[in-house]
Write a protein that binds this DNA or RNA. Structure first.
Lengths: 342, 342
DNA sequence: AGTCGGGTCCAAAGCGCTTTGGGCCCGATT
DNA sequence: AATCGGGCCCAAAGCGCTTTGGACCCGACT
């Protein structure tokens, strides 16, 4: 059942039916109601492609899942982020167009997405250091917002990012305030831009107290539980083991905990652990009243909401770049405490 | 730059240009090359909406993320599944249209998706027990494949599912063979259809040896680490604690391990744990050579691949329902062993 | 010499919608 | 009585593509 049929069955023109359905004022209330009723009855739904072609709006936004051949891991953040974004987008009638891209031909896909008229805007995820995708998106000219930032790229573009540097600075301060002097950093993959910022925050905090970092206590890798476990184990076996660990994710922290407890030590008493908690729904940090880890916290789902919001604004208003920096909160839990007496 | 312009700039008709670009034989090789070159040069990309409107194919498939108001948790499976599906889909030139749906108005959205002509087919995720979405999809008449099954719904529809029942039967057998008699089941939410099957497999295995299950040793909840930890703790404190745990996911198993180790017990020696491993990329079960858990394993990413494959077949051939049951493999790791002597 | 047919290319008709530019009717204003 | 101006509705022109149904040219076959 298309518009033509519907119009015919009502003895009206397509124009009138279209206007009735879309709330234009040039149609009487009685007619409008009659049209609505018929549409309901016949189960009429406008064809989105035709509508999109006519209006120029796709009513959908693009989201690219980059997939490097090397890094086979799917970003665990992804599900929650997308859920957040989808929530606000679906409220506004937008859909999400997802493409998976092998890193090599990302350029093509982004270009394709836009020119194909499929999307009105894009959300870009997980920027790498020196990511050229931003230049690409700018060249393409479609509204876009980046979840995260790219350090070396200082052009004006819209982004939304958690203040990784500050969060890790603060977490480090927390440990330093407790008296820790040997603090380990279990960072994420250094190809990810945020890992740099986190390291910088960590180093800044140390530098502010005229302390250097021990390179042996800084590692980076994909953020799995096993990575957390293995590196913690290794470091605890050092002649001068760290007294505290700063873990880049809850999962890594859980690995650290396992390594700690395997040695008969207790987290928060013998060794402190502070993690960054993305607020993933399937991996909660205990409960708000009883957290497991001392953690910097920033909900990635909220980030999804806000990214979507930002993008919609960009699409609607053609305004300048919108940049949002979110501050993580610090929740002190039982996993951190003063270092044990020597 | 649209087809008309491109054709004009070449002094050709739209027809010819379109055919040249789409590989039709009615155009000479020299012309085709000339057209290709011009298209490249001007950066021409056909508008997907127009093309879709003309061909009737959307070249995209729909994926609905159901979101119940009650269950705020995002399916952790989702990211890997979608990555798998996206891989095969993108190879074939399909995109994924994601909509988030609040459970209440799922009907509407599914209907909208199709009638709006946005998608050529649908993948349905995470079916609940007695899910009416299947009837809905059938009524709609668009090709679809379900990842999972719905027990009570015996109509013919295409699905792809891991053999949950058999996997858990086998896992239970493994524990029984080792000599365990008190086995706990840490199941997923019972609203999910697969949780039923898993429980059935578990009970079948017990029944096959003329054993009953102790209801006190069977729980279900959203599969988090904390759930695993808390329930394991609780059960270990029972007057007659279980000697083995069957956990519905790796995360739950990790929680169980933590509870076990917190009591100074060792997994595999004092208490056995078998988990189901979905092969999530960010949550590997150790390494293939050195697994952490004894686990039934079935890659959810592969399931994504296969679902996509199935759907594309369905779209292309209009064949009857395609049903695929995947068998999980059982990897014996260090987390299971004979029960300790009494 | 006439016809056939393959190779190239084109004009135009859709696909289903929105939107522009009127048209018609009728009560209200000069 | 003539004009005006809402209110309501319509025909038709796009949006950018594919595809049908020829048209034209030429070498090859009767």
């Amino acid at each position: 059942m298309n518009l033509k049929d519907l119009a015919a069955s009502l003895g009206l023109s397509q124009t009138t039916v279209s206007r009735a359905l879309n709330g234009y004022p040039e149609v009487s209330e009685t007619t409008r109601e009659r049209v609505r009723e018929a549409a309901r009855q016949y189960g009429y739904r406008p064809d989105s492609r035709a509508r999109s072609l006519a209006t120029g709006k796709a009513m959908s936004i693009g989201l690219v899942l980059p997939m490097s051949a090397t890094q086979e891991i799917v970003n665990p953040i992804f599900a929650d982020f997308i859920a957040g974004a989808a929530e606000t987008l679906s409220e506004r009638g937008y859909d999400i167009m997802l493409s998976l891209v092998h890193e090599a031909d990302q350029g093509d896909v982004y270009r394709a997405m836009l020119s194909k008229g499929r999307v009105d805007g894009l959300i870009m995820q997980a920027p790498l250091t020196g990511d050229e995708r931003i230049a690409l998106l700018q060249e393409i000219g479609l509204p876009f917002v980046v979840h995260g930032r790219v350090s070396d790229h200082d052009d004006a573009y819209s982004w939304l990012d958690m203040d990784n540097r500050h969060a890790f600075h603060r977490a480090t301060d927390h440990l330093l305030d407790l008296g820790h002097r040997r603090i380990a950093l279990l960072n994420g993959l250094e190809t990810m831009d945020f890992a740099h910022r986190r390291r910088d925050g960590f180093l800044d905090a140390l530098a502010a107290r005229r302390m250097g970092a021990d390179p042996a206590l800084m590692t980076c890798a994909a953020m799995t539980e096993f990575y957390g476990h293995d590196e913690t184990s290794r470091m605890l076996d050092l002649p001068e083991p760290p007294t505290a660990f700063l873990a880049s994710s809850l999962l890594v922290g859980m690995g650290a905990r396992r390594a700690i407890e395997a040695r008969g030590l207790r987290m928060g008493r013998d060794v402190s652990v502070v993690v960054h908690d993305d607020g993933l729904s399937y991996l909660p940090n205990g409960t708000p009243e009883a957290p497991i880890f001392t953690a910097t916290h920033s909900s990635v789902r909220d980030a999804g909401h806000l990214c979507a919001e930002t993008l919609l604004t960009l699409i609607a208003e053609e305004s300048g770049p919108i940049q949002t920096k979110l501050q993580a909160s610090l929740t002190v839990g039982p996993s951190s405490g003063p270092p044990p007496p020597h």
